[in-house]
Simulated scan of single mutants.
Amino acid sequence: MKFSLYQASRKGGRPYNEDRLAYASSNSTLLLVLADGMGGHAHGEVASQLTVDTVCRLFKDQAQPSLDDPSGFLLEAIYSAHEAVNAYAVEHDLPEPPRTTCVACVVQQGRAVWAHVGDSRLYHFQRDRFRSHTRDHSMVQQLVDRGLINEAEAQQRVERNMLYNAIGGFMLPDIEVSDPVPLHEGDLILLCSDGFWDELTAEEMLAQLQARPLREAIHLLMDTAEGRGGPRCDNLSALALRFGPEPVAG
Rank of each mutant, 00 (worst) to 15 (best):
M1T: 06
P15T: 02
S26D: 14
L31R: 08
L31M: 12
L32V: 08
V33L: 04
L34R: 01
G37V: 04
H41L: 09
L50D: 09
V52H: 05
D53R: 10
L58K: 06
L58R: 12
K60G: 10
K60N: 13
Q62W: 08
P70S: 12
S71A: 15
L74C: 10
L75M: 08
A77K: 04
A81F: 09
H82I: 00
A84R: 12
N86H: 07
A87Y: 00
D93K: 11
L94M: 15
P97C: 08
R99A: 11
T100D: 02
T101E: 10
Q109N: 15
G110W: 11
A115C: 11
S120N: 03
S120W: 10
L122P: 06
H124F: 15
F125M: 02
R129F: 13
S132W: 14
S132E: 13
S132N: 10
T134Q: 11
D136G: 02
S138A: 09
G147Y: 11
N150G: 13
E153F: 08
Q156L: 15
R157Q: 14
E159K: 06
N161H: 15
N161Q: 14
N165K: 01
A166F: 04
G168Y: 09
M171I: 02
V181G: 00
H184R: 12
L190D: 11
F196K: 02
W197L: 06
L200P: 08
L206D: 12
Q210E: 14
A211N: 10
L214T: 04
L220R: 15
D223W: 03
E226L: 15
G229P: 13
P231D: 12
D234V: 10
L236N: 07
A238K: 02
A238G: 13
A238M: 08
A238N: 08
R242N: 12
P245D: 13
P247S: 01
A249W: 00
G250W: 05
